[in-house]
Design a protein around this nucleic acid. Structure first.
Length: 269
DNA sequence: AATACCCTCAACCGCACGACA
DNA sequence: GTGTCGTGCGGTTGAGGGTAT
């Protein structure tokens, strides 16, 4: 069932987000929530497709995102969870509050994979020796069958027949958005701008951080009247995040605990 | 100092799923 | 029952910064 592209490409901007766009998006979501990503860019006056807005929000602008380097504990958790869950980054992210699937995926491919598979990597490197000039793409991650290891049907626990890396956990893929979005008050770190390095504190970093803070205060203090879109104000983080999704998480948490796979690995949820 | 190479990460792409008409 | 829509997910790409030569 081929779906039309998520957006009519004409006229829509692609590529890196500007701070202006970030402000607009954040302000809009803070005021009106994101009930409909597809309609959001139009309502907010952004020349982006809804998908792009969603990604930007989830991976970068959400106030509860923890930025900065991964701690040793986090890295260890990722390794353990990856062992259990495979490339199910969203499920892994759900266990690491404040971290996004994209971020975890990046960390895995850039650091952790090498750490746990040094020999394998060497072999691959030998098979495909420097292979070329200039920028080289790293070898692709082992392809998992699309969809096969993906979300389970809601409230079912039927393991798929294929050889997905894990079976019982597959249904745990509460999205990052659902799982962590409730921590609205936790706006300690700031989105949309260079990460502050948690282990370095250069003056430059401090400067960036200052800017971040002002970004948020500025954004959050924007008057509602500056939006002429007649929408119902609502919780910027969506009502679902406060009740239904939390219940889901509890349910799946119980399932995992009972499955015996994920016991010590759940420091918090 | 200049250049080439490497690494990181934000963003894009395409597919699959659930909801709904 | 079927098709479409909206969303979520994992894989992949490429710009840009960092490092080595």
């Amino acid at each position: 069932m081929g779906r039309a592209p998520c957006c009519e490409k004409m006229g829509l901007k692609k590529g890196p987000w500007t701070s202006e766009e970030d402000k607009v998006l954040v302000a809009h979501i803070q005021r009106f929530g994101h009930g409909n990503w597809r309609a959001l860019p139009k309502q907010a006056g952004l020349l982006r497709c809804g998908k792009s807005c969603r990604l930007r929000w989830i991976n970068y602008l959400r106030p509860d995102i923890k930025r900065g380097n991964f701690s040793k504990e986090e890295e260890d958790s990722i390794i353990r969870l990856h062992k259990q869950l495979g490339n199910r980054w969203s499920a892994i992210a759900a266990r690491l509050p404040g971290r996004t699937d994209n971020e975890i995926k990046n960390v895995w491919h850039t650091h952790l994979k090498k750490r746990i598979e040094p020999t394998k990597d060497k072999e691959e490197a030998r098979e495909a020796p420097a292979g070329g000039s200039g920028k080289k793409r790293r070898p692709a991650a082992p392809a998992t069958k699309r969809g096969a290891a993906r979300r389970a049907p809601a409230a079912t626990n039927v393991p798929a027949a294929d050889a997905a890396p894990v079976s019982p956990e597959r249904s745990a893929s509460s999205s990052v958005t659902e799982s962590s979005v409730t921590e609205q008050g936790n706006t300690g770190t700031s989105p949309g701008f260079p990460k502050e390095e948690s282990f370095t504190s250069s003056p430059d970093a401090a400067e960036e951080f200052q800017f971040d803070e002002s970004f948020w205060s500025e954004t959050l203090s924007m008057p509602l009247e500056s939006f002429d879109v007649p929408m119902e104000p609502c919780d910027a983080f969506g009502a679902a995040a406060t009740s239904g999704a939390a219940d889901d998480m509890d349910y799946w948490l119980r399932v995992f605990m009972e499955s015996g796979d994920v016991q010590q690995e759940l420091p918090q949820i």
